[in-house]
């Protein structure tokens, strides 16, 4: 038997080339973990809002209207005396449900179609790609507004409509990422070993595309949260008195000069949430690019 040197970890693989396009390993860094912590906190608060003993976000209290931050009301109260902190936390629920819910719908349908199209190519690819172009050519925002206005704007309908509108975009992104892997030799090898199409898609291609999907998912959630805010501003999101970050900002317009806190806290919550999501998405993406560079 011909002998081989025992493989060691971190052997210089094609040392010269990897040096000439010198890329340095990038650790996630402190900012990444701060952002991840912030997102986790927001999600946790939103989930546990009803058991945290917060004040009811819709209970009006005419004894304390338009107050600044106090010990009793950390973020102050609004024009109807409702606790802003509690409203921001409950409002997060709406943003999170719409943001994550819509992206889960877009991702699951869009990515499944994309993986299938990238692997099978041929007619399926042609058909779904054509459909995605047709949908992308449509002004999505106008369509979403029109459908919501016509169909009604409860939380689940909004989530569903935005989710469906996002499918073609997810399809394009995931398909492009998957195409590069679908033609690699390890896919052919799996095929010659008798792997089913399902197995090839889920075990061979998907794990390679997953990091790109995760980072796109997070940036997608951020975009949907903005979209929900915009819809709320137009009065096309959940209806008062149910709080959402969008309609809180919208309502604050009238009292902005008297009570700037009213606009500040929901805006701050939204901005920090979006920055954190984008930063995490970007960090994951560049970590992925780096790994790709090694191959």
């Amino acid at each position: 038997m011909s002998s081989a040197s025992s493989p060691r970890a971190q052997e210089p693989l094609l040392v010269e080339e990897s040096l000439l396009n010198a890329t340095r390993r990038r650790a996630f860094g402190v900012m990444f973990w701060i952002c991840a912590g912030w997102i986790a906190l927001v999600v946790l608060l939103a989930l546990l809002a009803s058991v945290l003993g917060l004040q009811n976000p819709t209970t009006e209290n005419y004894d304390s209207l338009n107050q600044g931050p106090t010990l009793a009301h950390w973020f102050g109260t609004d024009d109807l005396g409702r606790d802003i902190f509690s409203r921001v936390v409950y409002g997060a629920r709406v943003s999170l449900i719409v943001g994550f819910g819509a992206m889960v719908i877009s991702m699951s349908i869009g990515a499944s179609l994309a993986l299938l199209a990238a692997y099978r190519r041929g007619k399926i690819d042609l058909l779904v790609s054509a459909a995605s172009y047709v949908m992308l050519a449509f002004p999505a925002l106008v369509a979403v507004i029109a459908i919501i206005a016509f169909w009604g704007h409860d939380l689940w309908k909004i989530t569903l409509i935005i989710g469906v509108a996002g499918i073609p975009l997810v399809f394009r992104v995931v398909r492009a990422a998957a195409l590069g892997y679908a033609t690699r030799d390890f896919v052919v090898a799996a095929k010659t070993q008798g792997a089913s199409d399902w197995r090839i898609i889920t075990k061979e291609i998907l794990p390679n595309v997953l990091p790109a999907m995760v980072s796109f998912f997070l940036i997608g959630v951020a975009s949907v949260v903005i979209l929900e805010g915009a819809l709320a501003f137009l009065g096309l999101s959940v209806q008062p008195p149910t709080p959402s970050w969008g309609n809180m900002i919208s309502e604050s317009r009238t009292y902005l000069s008297q009570n700037p806190w009213l606009a500040l806290f929901p805006s701050l919550a939204m901005i920090l949430f979006l920055i954190a999501l984008n930063l995490i998405g970007d960090t994951l993406r560049s970590a992925l690019d780096h790994q790709e560079g090694k191959l």
């Binding site: 094609l14 040392v15 000439l20």
Partner: peptide, 11 residues
């Protein structure tokens, strides 16, 4: 062979 430094030398 690859890694011998010939490419870096030529650069």
């Amino acid at each position: 062979e690859s890694g011998s430094g010939k490419t870096v030398l030529s650069r």
